[in-house]
Design a protein around this nucleic acid. Structure first.
Lengths: 195, 195
DNA sequence: CAATTTGACGACCATTTGGTCTAAAAATGC
DNA sequence: GCATTTTTAGACCAAATGGTCGTCAAATTG
């Protein structure tokens, strides 16, 4: 006997919850808000995800997976390397302009809010940054081998620099969004590091 | 009649409160924690600062003022420009290494936690970033006029870039602190932008 | 010294928090 | 159609939240 099947789609619930956490952060998000966003009853939510923290981890994992998927799409090894890097930078310019800018980034917000207090979260954030850095480095190494990097540019250092720059843009644009200057910044970066 | 004078020093209380907010963030800091840190009773705290939010604003103002003071000290117009910029970058390398790294930055954390929901906070954060960017730009313009900047580097764009990079380093180093790579990143920056 | 102003303290309060549990309903397999 | 299983809804709970208020002591001033 299988019993009654679940009425909601857990993936949809995670997606909705992710939206709330993204907008408000972990502590500022209350259970009632999550219930309304997911259209779940308290009982269903707890049965499916354990507790608020568990649901948050699922939402964070989703956000991280989406981010890395986009990164991989941009840095596709079959494309021209510099085009890939440009696409990646352009994506961040978009995300740090307009309405999206004010929403910020769930990873950055979580890193600052829980990064040093919640080991499970810390692990996930650390892995994300490692993964992002590694992907950038791989792309930059390919660019270097194709002699598309400016002389003296070291892929590992440049990868770290680009990652910090992009995440910093998300911080600053939370309150000082300005498409023009984001654009100019990534252009300056390309001017200095590529050839 | 003047009445009984206050027993505690409000500045000390703000300093202590700042420490707690810095470590835990706004929402995660409870009143009892603030009372213990400041050695104040509930009544005294509310009489002196209005409420938790008011105290937070005072603490944030303090943190911002301290940051700008340090920045001005580093970028002292009487010093050699590049030395000043180097000092500024070196300070961020320090702050993104060791124990300080895990503590993060109250401004960055606040920008992400409350930046788009609390107008009073948003205003302060925006002003800080504007001020930081302006100071960096002034220094870079001076460097440019002394022909110490690499060809084609625009002070305004470079200022924004450096600010984003430095704040991004604080984000990443919350979970992935690594003195060596911070050091390498700022060195790469100098190599590319100064001459 | 006396009067008065004021600060400190902590009991107190309503609200909200995250989390549990029960009872009814619904879908399944026989 | 029945028995079983699982979901659902929401009443319920203890604890913690931010915030208020009355009492008492202390310090200043005339």
């Amino acid at each position: 006997m299988r019993g009654r099947p679940r009425e909601f789609d857990p993936d949809d619930a995670i997606e909705s919850a992710m939206g709330v956490f993204w907008t408000s952060g972990y502590h500022a998000t209350s259970l009632p808000e999550l219930l309304e966003a997911t259209n779940l009853s308290r009982g269903s939510l707890y049965a499916a995800f354990g507790d608020k923290h568990g649901l948050f981890l699922r939402a964070l994992d989703r956000y991280i997976a989406d981010s890395l998927t986009r990164l991989d799409a941009d840095l596709d090894p079959h494309k021209d390397v510099l085009d890939g890097i440009r696409a990646c930078l352009a994506r961040y310019v978009e995300r740090t302009s307009g309405a999206g800018a004010k929403r910020g980034c769930l990873i950055v917000a979580t890193a600052m809010e829980l990064g040093s207090q919640d080991v499970e979260v810390e692990q996930r954030i650390r892995r994300f940054f490692k993964a992002m850095e590694a992907r950038l480095m791989t792309a930059l190494e390919r660019a270097k081998s194709e002699r598309r990097l400016a002389d003296g540019v070291e892929p590992s250092t440049a990868a770290r620099l680009i990652m910090c720059l992009l995440e910093g843009m998300r911080v600053v644009s939370k309150t000082n969004a300005d498409r023009g200057s984001s654009q100019a910044v990534v252009q300056a970066l390309l001017d200095r590091f590529a050839k």
